[in-house]
Simulated scan of single mutants.
Amino acid sequence: MGVVVKDFNVDTVTSEDIDRLKQSIYRDKVAVLRNQGDITPEQFVKLGHMFGELVSYHEPMYHHPDFEEIFVSSNIPEDGKQIGVPKTGKFWHADYQFMPQPFAFTIFSPKVLPPKNRGTFFINMAKAYEALPQELKDAAAGTTSSHSVRKFFKIRPDDVYRPLGEIIREVEEHTPAVTFPTVMEHPVTGEKILFISEGFTVELHGSDDPDLLDKLFDATGQLDQEFAHPNIYQHAYEPGDIVIWDNRTLIHRALHTTTPAATVSHRVTALDGLPLYARAL
């Protein structure tokens, strides 16, 4: 899974180059742009716009101070202030899976890397669906699944001392659960995708088996705490990497260090103008 792109330059890349790169990401799921350590936040946003309509994260505490399109994960204060949010994404998910329009592309740029245990785990949910036993494929067919941020919503600084029930009600009002087909067809590749994640998928509808969702989590590798399941691919970042992936097909989970270490990453996310899926299956 994935391709490596060398000699990429955001200031000289052509629209034809970007079109080729998009097609490669749809096909190969991950593209790694090497040696991009000098890219500025302004250039990073420019790169994101080349892939489609950028969507700023719905919670402002994640925003870059100068470019709201950039989602910041950081445990390094700047001038005594917290910029972004530390330790994000330590659970299986597709970005914005809990919103009416999940993203097409995630574009990720680690800015400060820890000396070890650095990277992201991925599962290709098209390949994972393909590998399911036929009885699970049959059970999932025609069902729908609901997705919510409620399990992993991070408390905001201004939530301190607020009643928990009030915060939960606010989360449910601002980001109510959304429902999509459990199995869907990719609008570009035609692949069958199992569109669920252990982090955001909270309920499966249309099945007589109350344990079906957990069975699908287990079969796809999302319950493997050792990350040894054959569906799991780990990308270990090199300094200067920018990684772009197909957010329809891949779910991912951050690999955080077990000991304190400085980490900073930037992310932009784009819609590609296509529907989330071609048809439900």
Score class of each variant (00 low, 15 high):
residue 18 I to G: 03
residue 18 I to R: 00
residue 18 I to A: 05
residue 18 I to N: 05
residue 20 R to S: 08
residue 21 L to K: 01
residue 21 L to T: 03
residue 21 L to Y: 02
residue 22 K to H: 08
residue 23 Q to C: 06
residue 23 Q to A: 13
residue 24 S to K: 12
residue 26 Y to F: 06
residue 26 Y to M: 01
residue 26 Y to A: 05
residue 26 Y to V: 01
residue 26 Y to T: 04
residue 27 R to V: 00
residue 27 R to P: 00
residue 27 R to D: 15
residue 27 R to A: 09
residue 27 R to H: 11
residue 28 D to Q: 15
residue 29 K to C: 06
residue 29 K to F: 01
residue 29 K to G: 04
residue 30 V to W: 08
residue 30 V to G: 07
residue 31 A to P: 05
residue 31 A to F: 06
residue 32 V to D: 01
residue 32 V to K: 08
residue 32 V to Q: 09
residue 33 L to E: 01
residue 35 N to K: 14
residue 35 N to I: 04
residue 35 N to L: 04
residue 36 Q to W: 02
residue 36 Q to R: 03
residue 36 Q to K: 03
residue 37 G to S: 09
residue 37 G to R: 01
residue 37 G to V: 00
residue 37 G to E: 06
residue 37 G to P: 03
residue 37 G to N: 02
residue 38 D to F: 08
residue 38 D to V: 01
residue 38 D to S: 11
residue 39 I to L: 10
residue 39 I to E: 07
residue 39 I to M: 13
residue 39 I to F: 07
residue 42 E to K: 14
residue 42 E to P: 08
residue 43 Q to A: 04
residue 43 Q to F: 02
residue 44 F to Y: 03
residue 44 F to R: 00
residue 44 F to I: 02
residue 45 V to L: 04
residue 45 V to M: 09
residue 46 K to S: 08
residue 46 K to D: 11
residue 47 L to N: 00
residue 47 L to F: 11
residue 47 L to D: 06
residue 49 H to R: 15
residue 49 H to S: 09
residue 49 H to C: 12
residue 49 H to P: 03
residue 49 H to Y: 13
residue 50 M to L: 15
residue 50 M to P: 02
residue 51 F to V: 02
residue 51 F to N: 00
residue 52 G to A: 04
residue 52 G to S: 09
residue 52 G to P: 04
residue 52 G to I: 09
residue 53 E to I: 09
residue 53 E to G: 07
residue 53 E to R: 12
residue 53 E to F: 07
residue 54 L to W: 07
residue 54 L to I: 12
residue 54 L to H: 00
residue 54 L to M: 07
residue 55 V to D: 12
residue 55 V to K: 13
residue 56 S to A: 15
residue 56 S to P: 02
residue 56 S to K: 12
residue 56 S to R: 14
residue 56 S to V: 05
residue 57 Y to M: 08
residue 57 Y to F: 14
residue 57 Y to G: 04
residue 57 Y to W: 06
residue 57 Y to H: 14
residue 58 H to T: 15
residue 58 H to L: 15
residue 59 E to C: 15
residue 60 P to D: 08
residue 60 P to Q: 14
residue 60 P to H: 13
residue 60 P to K: 14
residue 60 P to G: 10
residue 61 M to Q: 15
residue 62 Y to C: 13
residue 62 Y to P: 12
residue 63 H to K: 12
residue 63 H to I: 12
residue 63 H to G: 11
residue 64 H to K: 12
residue 65 P to V: 10
residue 66 D to P: 02
residue 66 D to M: 15
residue 66 D to W: 07
residue 66 D to S: 14
residue 66 D to V: 11
residue 66 D to C: 11
residue 67 F to Q: 14
residue 67 F to T: 06
residue 68 E to H: 11
residue 68 E to T: 12
residue 68 E to N: 14
